[in-house]
């Protein structure tokens, strides 16, 4: 009963993993001749590559902006929604909707929303007398703007996980807190709710970090890494090196580094989840 699964795991995950790792240590590129082992040479070349440095820096900035914002937005939404007596299902649906919507298609919608000529936001700003910028074309603002889209599309998950966590908060704890005199919302938040949500918060942080690291669709549709490489991020760098520039070994080396980072984060997540359960 396990033969197909075992075979596919081997063929579609373990072999590719080995293949990409092996390629990273060679000078091979697709369509090229025989590969020669070059040790860490590819990695050295990669680290020296200005585009790669830009991609790492951009990805770091993107993650540093998107992850805390996503988590806070999700937490705030969940805290507000869980207190609602009516409309819980509605808010849950609306806030999660962007996470389901095809991001490639929604990227086009965002382009229209922010477009200086036809966008809603620039038109609104013009109404109040502020000159709108061309945010997606300006190297200063392009990455933060993509970050906003990222938050918009990921906050639903954070909200959902926090809501699930809040639903499991033991009612008795709140009753005990009320008897102990923790009457108002802020007291309860600080002494009961947030401690209860701590393990979930850790999980959401890692989950959204892994997701933010994988940002690709908005870059590929809207900015293609531009303007002036201001939105060149890790996956788009790999994609370009591998499939446009055919510097296969370089892309492989970058992939290996990418996997290592995600793996480390996953281990952290495992550690956090275990720690949460151990308590």
């Amino acid at each position: 009963m396990v033969a197909p699964a075992a075979l596919l795991l081997l063929l579609l995950i373990l072999v590719p993993l080995a293949l990409v790792t092996a390629t990273a240590f060679t000078d091979w590129h697709l369509g090229g001749g025989a590969a020669a082992f070059v040790g860490l040479e590819t990695f050295r070349e990669l680290v020296d590559d200005p585009d790669f440095r830009t991609a790492v820096w951009n990805t770091t900035r993107y993650v540093a902006f998107v992850v805390p914002a996503t988590t806070l937005a999700g937490l705030a939404a969940a805290l507000l929604i869980v207190e609602c007596r009516r409309g819980q299902a509605f808010y849950r649906m609306v806030y999660f909707l962007p996470s389901v919507a095809t991001l490639a298609a929604m990227a086009v919608a965002w382009q229209m929303l922010l477009s200086p000529s036809v966008g809603a936001v620039p038109q609104l700003l013009r109404l109040v007398g502020v000159a709108p910028g061309n945010w997606l074309q300006d190297p200063e603002t392009a990455l933060p703007t993509l970050g906003l889209i990222g938050i918009w599309s990921e906050a639903g998950f954070a909200m959902l996980f926090f809501l699930a966590g809040l639903k499991t908060a033991p009612r008795e704890l709140y009753e005990a807190a009320a008897i102990d005199g923790c009457g108002n919302f802020l007291d309860r938040l600080r002494h009961v709710t947030l401690p209860h949500l701590a393990p979930i918060t850790a999980f959401v942080l890692v989950f959204s970090t892994i997701h933010a690291l994988r940002v690709f669709d908005t870059v590929a549709i809207i900015t293609r890494g531009g303007p002036e490489k201001a939105t060149l991020v890790a996956l788009y760098f790999i994609y370009q090196e591998a499939f446009s520039l055919f510097r296969t070994n370089l892309a492989a080396a970058a992939t290996v580094l990418f996997i290592v980072v995600v793996l480390a984060l996953s281990l952290l997540q495992l550690y956090v989840v275990r720690g949460g359960r151990g308590r």
Partner: peptide
């Protein structure tokens, strides 16, 4: 087998695009 599943679980699918493309 379980170990292989767990490895597969943490590898982001996007990271395997290159080797899968070669294959």
């Amino acid at each position: 087998l379980w170990l292989a599943v767990l490895v597969g679980l943490v590898i982001p699918p996007a990271a395997l695009a290159l080797p899968l493309f070669i294959m």
